[in-house]
Design a protein around this nucleic acid. Sequence first.
DNA 1: TACTATACGGAACGTTCGCTCCGGTTAGCC
DNA 2: GGCTAACCGGAGCGAACGTTCCGTATAGTA
Lengths: 192, 192
Amino acid sequence: MSDRSGTVEPVKPLRADARRNRAKVLQVAYEVFAAEGLGVPIDEIARRAGVGAGTVYRHFPTKEALYRAIVVDRVEHLVATARELAATQAPGEAFYAFFDLMTTEGATDKGLADALAGEGIDLGDVMPEHERAFKDALGQLLRLAQAAGTVRPDVTVADVKTLMVGCQAMQRYGGDAAPERVLGVVREGLRP
Amino acid sequence: MSDRSGTVEPVKPLRADARRNRAKVLQVAYEVFAAEGLGVPIDEIARRAGVGAGTVYRHFPTKEALYRAIVVDRVEHLVATARELAATQAPGEAFYAFFDLMTTEGATDKGLADALAGEGIDLGDVMPEHERAFKDALGQLLRLAQAAGTVRPDVTVADVKTLMVGCQAMQRYGGDAAPERVLGVVREGLRP
DNA sequence: TACTATACGGAACGTTCGCTCCGGTTAGCC
DNA sequence: GGCTAACCGGAGCGAACGTTCCGTATAGTA
């Protein structure tokens, strides 16, 4: 329960080809599920990844296990990015850089999130400790920005997360709206 | 192509029990799909509506036809509400009343929209003329509000629609964020 | 190079689900 | 009340999909 992936197995190191295949499947599944929904068959994922169905099931014993692995992978990536921004950029800028990144590049993640939500799967309790890590990283960015005076002091981490989710939806289903103007409204609202 | 439901059939008037069953199925399907996703079997919808599967398929020849009918039904309801508000309330207030209604009560619709989006179904081109009717009604509210000076003049109908979609997502997946504060940010950004 | 544990591919199985079909029932009308 | 067309329920069919199994291939090692 204490290792990074949330599983307990004693981590036998994978063979080189196995590691390659696992990563390929994870990436392909992420893209396909986000773009076309969770209805895509495992056989199809396997085909596009250039492996057999058995290989997919060896790495991810169930289709839901594959969903989870994808989400965990994405969240870890986002947390790493947030930490890097916090360490690299000026406090006032790091927050908005992450905000922009989440709302633009994150539209693909939104596709996956919608697919999961549409299936009745709640992200929050699929991976509680990763949720916490994300909130911690975001909280750090937020606190720095509030201390620097670039974000109004009364908003909480939960508020910001919620706003980002909303902005992702705007980006993804925006239609012919002007993204700058729409996002501008929200960002303006966050200033003190 | 010119009748309200978007189908061409020469409108034979339904028998009383048929009309009852159709309405019941539509309502049950709306609630169930929005709450549990599109994966729920037709047999289950039929069971909860208290009819046989054959009855569902007589009214909606395909599962996708059922999706469409639900969406059309909802949009017609929203358009009617928008028109009523425009005729009833003060111009400056009608817009925000509709905005609130869409972002709070509309969370259920968001569940359905997510399910459809998660399945790769684009609402925009499922029902183009209803999309247009919605935009017209919303446009009327917006124009009145802008003329009354309660909404900044540079936002378009598409912008507002996008913002509402985002706010619905915030409501639905807000977690422990404070709804008033989060929505307040967006509404504040809409003021001149 | 030879040996073995590990991983691979894809055929096959059981289940689920969309959809059809038909014998029975009921609403609308005289 | 009796007649007919419209409608109903639910068993059953075929296809699709998640998952398993096993004979074959290959990475790692001496």
